[in-house]
Amino acid sequence: MTDSYPEAAVPTDWNDFVARMNEQFFDAMEKNMEAQAEFVEQWSQTVDGEGMGEMNFGDGVEGYKRAYEAWMEAADQMVERASDSMEGEDVEFEEFRDIWLNTANKAFKEVMDTTAFAAWTGSSVGQMLEMQQQADEAAEDTLHTLGFATEGDVEEIGDRLVELERRQHAVEQKLDRVLEHLEE
């Protein structure tokens, strides 16, 4: 053993080292599969809970299928590249990261491109806008109770001022015509 490597950094048994590497790799792969399953379950509950039509639901299932296929292709690539690495090929860690990042983007796109996702998003946005309107109404009621002017009050005053200016302008025009007739 050389002085350039600390004793703890040099594996004492190559087989133990490779076994630990394999174990870590398969643990990471298992966690990824669990995350995928959780994603599909959550998405399924969301779409099912929205009461989607058969067409939207079928489209959503197709999107899941394409996303799942993307994950399976990534798992195959990971196994292939891990095998290449174990056979001595120089495989950069970033390549493994890139496989999962690119797959996550592709899988998310597959789901987002479905009419089910669009319907769910539209429903969610509608619910959020409704909740915002209720919150605005509650805030306005609270401000009224406390004696403060609200946005609605200011808009009403603005509308009244515009109407007053319009009437004043009409009165001024009539007055100008009366004065013209008197001067003649």
Rank of each mutant, 00 (worst) to 15 (best):
27 D>M: 02
61 V>R: 10
49 G>Q: 10
136 D>Y: 00
12 T>G: 12
93 F>S: 11
39 F>V: 04
69 E>H: 04
146 L>F: 09
6 P>W: 06
36 Q>G: 08
181 H>L: 07
175 L>P: 00
143 L>V: 02
138 A>S: 11
147 G>Q: 06
61 V>W: 05
18 V>C: 04
33 M>D: 07
4 S>W: 10
10 V>W: 06
155 E>Q: 13
26 F>M: 07
176 D>G: 03
15 N>T: 13
59 D>H: 05
95 E>H: 13
17 F>P: 01
157 I>K: 08
113 D>G: 15
57 F>N: 09
5 Y>H: 13
104 A>P: 01
134 Q>H: 10
57 F>H: 10
174 K>S: 08
98 D>C: 02
64 Y>A: 07
97 R>T: 14
123 S>C: 01
8 A>R: 12
143 L>T: 04
127 Q>H: 10
60 G>Q: 04
125 V>Y: 11
125 V>Q: 09
172 E>H: 08
43 W>S: 07
68 Y>K: 07
56 N>L: 01
167 R>E: 11
70 A>W: 04
10 V>Q: 13
18 V>G: 03
55 M>E: 14
111 V>T: 15
183 E>L: 01
3 D>M: 06
110 E>N: 15
112 M>S: 15
146 L>K: 12
161 L>N: 13
105 N>D: 14
97 R>C: 02
32 N>E: 05
22 N>Q: 12
157 I>L: 09
86 M>R: 10
21 M>E: 11
109 K>A: 14
176 D>Y: 02
174 K>T: 08
67 A>R: 06
41 E>F: 06
69 E>K: 10
85 S>R: 12
178 V>P: 00
143 L>C: 05
98 D>W: 01
54 E>M: 10
157 I>A: 14
9 A>R: 11
121 T>V: 03
58 G>T: 10
74 A>P: 03
52 M>Q: 15
75 A>Q: 12
144 H>Y: 00
44 S>I: 05
33 M>W: 06
106 K>L: 12
112 M>D: 12
162 V>A: 15
100 W>G: 03
35 A>N: 13
35 A>K: 14
136 D>W: 00
152 G>L: 01
171 V>W: 04
90 D>T: 11
95 E>K: 13
146 L>P: 03
55 M>G: 08
4 S>K: 15
38 E>G: 02
168 Q>S: 10
112 M>W: 09
87 E>D: 07
31 K>W: 01
152 G>N: 13
175 L>Q: 15
174 K>V: 02
140 E>Q: 09
132 Q>F: 07
126 G>K: 09
23 E>A: 13
125 V>W: 07
123 S>P: 01
9 A>D: 13
137 E>K: 05
172 E>P: 00
173 Q>N: 06
6 P>S: 15
50 E>L: 13
49 G>E: 08
60 G>D: 03
111 V>G: 07
88 G>C: 01
22 N>V: 07
146 L>H: 06
88 G>N: 06
145 T>N: 07
138 A>K: 11
57 F>R: 15
142 T>D: 08
164 L>I: 15
69 E>P: 00
172 E>W: 01
42 Q>G: 03
44 S>W: 08
